[in-house]
């Protein structure tokens, strides 16, 4: 192959009340867990966090596992009462979100829009009465 898969690099900028993570490279099968772990660690370490910005301008390929990680991040931020922002989305990411019908879900989380917070987690549990309870 002449193309080299680009490893995901994360640049975290921590300010009061919000965290901004710059994403650089591919968000895919190999790197999705890396981002998810990073975000989960921040959420656990900062209970007072109100906003999480994922800066996507330098994001290359996002595959289905990458999208799955973004969905999980959105579920966790909602559960923690944190607003998730996907900033500076490249056109390709927007196309993917549009195709998979998830663009509204992600953009509805920005301030001004209806923050779906605990509702997301609750309705997951509600639609699965037999499912394990404990949030993730």
């Amino acid at each position: 192959m002449t193309t080299h898969p680009q490893h995901l690099r994360l640049t975290t900028v921590d300010t009061e009340g919000s965290i901004r993570i710059g994403l650089q490279g591919d968000l895919d099968y190999d790197s999705a867990d890396h981002l998810l772990n990073e975000v989960t660690a921040h959420l656990a370490a900062r209970p007072a966090l109100t906003d999480l910005h994922l800066h996507c301008a330098e994001l290359d390929t996002v595959d289905s596992t990458g999208l799955s990680a973004l969905l999980m991040i959105s579920r966790r931020t909602s559960g923690a009462g944190v607003r998730l922002h996907l900033d500076a989305r490249p056109e390709r990411l927007d196309r993917l979100l549009h195709l998979t019908g998830t663009l509204d879900h992600f953009t509805a989380l920005v301030p001004g829009g209806a923050v779906r917070s605990p509702a997301t987690e609750e309705s997951v549990a509600a639609t699965r009465p037999n499912g394990p309870d404990g949030t993730t």
């Binding site: 799955s68 969905l71 999980m72 997951v124 499912g131």
Partner: peptide, 9 residues
């Protein structure tokens, strides 16, 4: 398919 443990879709 919804599952509180993962977002595999």
């Amino acid at each position: 398919l919804l599952n509180s443990h993962h977002t595999r879709f």
